[in-house]
Design a protein around this nucleic acid. Structure first.
Length: 399
RNA sequence: GGUGAGAUAGUCAAGUGGCCAACGACGGUGGACUGUAAAUCCGCUCCCUAUGGGUUCAGAGGUUCGACUCCUCUUCUCACCA
């Protein structure tokens, strides 16, 4: 039982620091029912969670299954600095109202995976604001610049002469201080967070709180392109609030290679089951597309329902395999005769009439499934189904 | 505080007085091929009913028939020195 739990916890992890301590905590839970805390920090600026975040959330949920209290930390104070691993050093500060809204939106999303009874949502401004100047100063004395520069991205930026703000040095310290305040037993995060996560251990030691958190790092999930990490700004993400149809379609669009990565990090199938699928595809007895469909169904069902996942698959087959129209299309209307290029812009199928004209020239535009050749075409009154490329549709009613 | 270098389209990056709406790469997008995958090939990629017109090369002025290119100031970035 204990061994099995440990194996599940280790699944897919990139690195675990102080694994023995995790074993002890779990043993104490199994033997005496003792609970422990697992911390994970999130940025309040991006309340739209995507599958990359759920890799962490699923791991947290697993810990909950084995006796953990999750400290879901919203870094409302640290967000004012901006994590140095991100691109922009300076970020706009969020108002209290915005943060509250974002937090609410977080809660709606995370409890699709986490158990609300075993989750405590906390904000780090609560204790960091109490630190004061002297508290902040004593925090900075626990570390030095040379060691700070060991951090990979600082190192690179320093060597290549890209600016580093002093406030960015503060960021890891504050994140580590969160672990001191919360007395976390374990902290989990992405591999890109390694430095910050270790800072938690360092500061817990420096502040002598009597324990040093274990650190569990998950790999960064690649986005739909299969290369860069999944993120909203790169627009290669699958949001947990995506509509079932979108979610299903996006999952099917990943490459075969990436599919295994997603299986490992997102599926609840056991590693043995996944190995069977992998062998099946390798020896040709299984079609990669159907294996991918299973994954897409599983994930879509997790955030919606089995039924809507099924429906999404049917819809998908309908549009793409059978070349039919989707069952729900945005509808627009306009008064009087309209020029086709203008109509495409109005229906949001093209960003400008220039682009619309280019699309027409290239044969990308269809009306009622018929290719349009004449870019001067005027639409008389009636109802039309406009299409650009393979996946953009709109219905237009000309009155 | 001083000295020097730099700021070009979504990103990187050419362009040093007219041939510039600006080479190229990446990204994005359309087409072919497919399993709406990947790989590959081809087209498009500032705006505008358009063999033409408009607005662009950090910002503001100036020189010139003409400026992304020259001059001045401003803002920002980096390097070296203090």
């Amino acid at each position: 039982m204990l061994q099995e739990a440990l194996r599940e916890i280790q699944r897919g992890t990139a690195e675990i620091i102080d694994n023995e301590r995790i074993e002890k905590l779990l043993k104490a839970y199994f033997d005496e029912g003792k609970t422990y805390t697992v911390k994970a920090g999130f940025d309040p600026t991006a309340p739209d969670l995507h599958l990359g975040h759920t890799v962490l959330l699923q791991k947290l949920a697993l810990f909950q299954k084995y006796g953990a209290k999750v400290q879901f930390l919203i870094g409302d104070f640290t967000a004012q600095i901006g994590d140095p691993s991100g691109k922009s050093a300076t970020r706009k500060t969020l108002s209290a109202i915005e943060i509250e809204e974002n937090a609410r939106s977080y809660k709606e999303q995370i409890f699709k995976i986490l158990d609300p009874l075993k989750t405590e949502v906390v904000f780090n401004s609560e204790w960091i604001n109490l630190l004061g100047a002297s508290g902040m100063l004593s925090l900075t004395t626990t570390f030095n610049v040379a060691r700070m520069l060991e951090r990979d991205d600082f190192d690179k930026r320093y060597k290549s002469g890209v600016s580093i703000s002093i406030s960015e040095f503060i960021y890891p310290l504050l994140q580590g201080y969160d672990s001191v305040h919360l007395k976390s037993d374990i902290e989990i995060g992405g591999t890109d967070q390694k430095f910050n996560l270790l800072m938690g251990r360092h500061l817990q030691r420096a502040y002598e709180i009597g324990k040093e958190q274990s650190v569990l790092m998950m790999p960064i999930l690649e986005g739909l392109d299969g290369v860069q990490k999944m993120s909203k700004s790169l627009n290669n993400y699958i949001g947990v609030v995506d509509e079932p149809n979108d979610m299903f379609a996006k999952l099917l669009s990943i490459s075969d290679e990436l599919m295994w990565r997603y299986y490992e990090l997102l599926s609840t199938k056991t590693l043995d089951e996944i190995a069977v699928l992998k062998n099946g595809v390798a020896d040709g007895s299984m079609h990669p597309k159907s294996v991918k469909e299973d994954l897409a169904l599983e994930i879509t069902a997790r955030f919606h329902s089995k039924e809507s996942a099924r429906a999404a698959k049917d819809e998908f087959d309908k549009i793409h395999s059978n070349n039919q129209l989707p069952s729900e299309i945005d509808e627009y209307s306009c008064d009087g005769k309209i020029w086709i290029a203008k109509a495409l812009v109005d229906c949001k199928l093209a960003p400008s009439t220039s682009q619309a004209r280019r699309d027409i020239k290239q044969g990308a535009v269809k009306i009622n499934q018929e290719k349009v050749n004449d870019e001067q075409l005027q639409l008389e009154s009636g109802e039309y189904v406009l299409q650009v490329g393979k996946r953009k549709f709109a219905k237009l009613k000309v009155i």
